[in-house]
């Protein structure tokens, strides 16, 4: 019989409840970090193979259409991954963590910190890939994944900031949906989705009615990096704030 590694129960700052929640999420690091990194590399490899396949079938494509491979959504998957992992994580760990005498507030803060760690690690991976992508002029085939969507002319740090924002928003939305699922299960998720879709439609309606689209696009285009970053952090913070309001009255369902 194998006994667990002997360790003394941590005390003081080393025994922070929020830290314990982060550790809980990172208990299976391959699932949390390793697997998505491997998937990112696999997506890049598959994209590269597809580009080569297209070039094999049509060798004159680079001359006919030099921009053929500059639009690629391969890097977006990580934002959707964080969204789904946030929902899944909340469902899998909320009851467990509260069973370990954690408050809802500490659970949410620890989960947010864990998500932030994931975002930082994935952005670091994107930074490495982005540097290589630029050094090789798009992997030698003018194919762009990290700086896709025509972002190869933007400074890399701006591209990374955009990805960080996408990840944070994906995570914020995922945590919010996770809380809705924990509290009201599938019915809650469906009703919330309908309400959100209704709110988006209402926004589109108002913008169209007031001819405000041009102003909105102008606002987005002219926003500085810091303004964008602040907006992203504010949106993520809002998602977490609303999530806490939902979760502070969430019972632990069997």
């Amino acid at each position: 019989m194998t006994a667990v590694e002997t360790a003394v129960a941590p005390t003081g700052l080393g025994r922070s409840r929020i830290g314990a929640v982060v550790r809980m999420h990172l208990s299976t690091p391959f699932m949390a970090l390793g697997l998505p990194m491997l998937i990112t590399l696999a997506v890049l490899t598959l994209n590269y193979l597809i580009w080569q396949l297209i070039l094999l079938a049509n060798p004159t494509l680079p001359q006919a259409d030099p921009d053929a491979f500059i639009y690629n959504g391969g890097a977006v998957w990580i934002a959707f991954y964080l969204l789904s992992i946030a929902i899944q994580t909340m469902n899998a760990t909320f009851r467990y963590a509260l069973g370990m005498s954690v408050t809802r507030r500490d659970y949410l803060l620890g989960t947010g910190a864990f998500m932030l760690i994931l975002s930082v690690v994935f952005v670091a991976l994107y930074a490495v890939l982005g540097v290589i992508e630029r050094a090789t002029d798009g992997w030698g085939v003018n194919g762009w994944m990290i700086s896709g969507f025509g972002m190869m002319d933007l400074p890399l740090w701006k591209v990374l900031l955009i990805w960080m924002g996408a990840m944070l928003i994906g995570m914020g939305l995922g945590v919010f949906y996770g809380a809705v699922f924990v509290q009201w299960r599938t019915t809650g998720v469906l009703i919330t989705s309908i309400l959100i879709a209704g709110a988006i439609l209402a926004g589109v309606w108002v913008l169209t009615e007031t001819q405000g689209w041009a102003d909105l696009i102008e606002l987005v285009v002219t926003a500085t990096a810091w303004e964008t970053a602040i907006a992203i952090v504010a949106a993520t913070g809002l998602a977490f704030g609303v999530t806490y309001l939902l979760m502070r009255r969430a019972p632990v369902r069997e």
Binding site: E5, A9, T11, R15, R17, M24
Partner: peptide, 10 residues
């Protein structure tokens, strides 16, 4: 059992 020490002070 590896997580439990971080949740329980004693």
């Amino acid at each position: 059992l590896a997580n439990a020490p971080h949740f329980f002070r004693n």
